[in-house]
Design a protein around this nucleic acid. Sequence first.
DNA 1: AACTCGGGGCA
DNA 2: TGCCCAGAGTT
Length: 213
Amino acid sequence: MNQNKRIQIFERWSAANPAPTTELIHGSPFELLIAVILSAQATDKSVNKATQPLFARANTASAILALGEDELRTHIRNIGLFNSKAKNIIKTCAILVAEHEGQVPRDRQALESLPGVGRKTANVVLNTAFGELTMAVDTHIFRVSNRTGIAPGKTPLAVERALLRHIPKRFLKNAHHWLILHGRYTCLARKPRCPECLIADLCDYRDKTAAAV
DNA sequence: AACTCGGGGCA
DNA sequence: TGCCCAGAGTT
């Protein structure tokens, strides 16, 4: 895909949806970290439903530790993969207290060494809590980047680097949100809604695949 | 690269 | 009912 096409795509998204926001409810960096760990392969609705009462009860690493794994588990029982997430969150809180004075570290390596925190979660925290320009490549962004041709790559990390390299700087800050929304509501995994797609005429995917409507 | 965890939402 | 979810860890 040439750069001219890319610019047209982001200008359309910019005009259509100028105000990006995170849909996960969070106040502090710690609440964000926990909410993002919980959101892996889960919907933001089910996460918010659980985290509101949880954070009212305990919203720091030491408070979650005081709560204990069993009570934490009951709080997040409505979220998928809750069993392993409860264990990971307890371990992570213990590390935060022991090695980071109970705070969320502003450091990629330190974040990714926390149980339950991978590249994608670390990128969300660095971006949303600390204002760093990162691309958190989830399944939506991976699919949309490859289908459209905006930033092709065989792995999420390759797509992440391609996005940072190819997206014009003035669009970089909001690009993450637009890509997510596009994947979530238009460029669906199984049945892409090409007829109602804002950028169908600029997309590498449409007309090249039988699945593209 | 493939597999597993996993309840909830939505068509 | 079947399929997917703002993934990570292990084999």
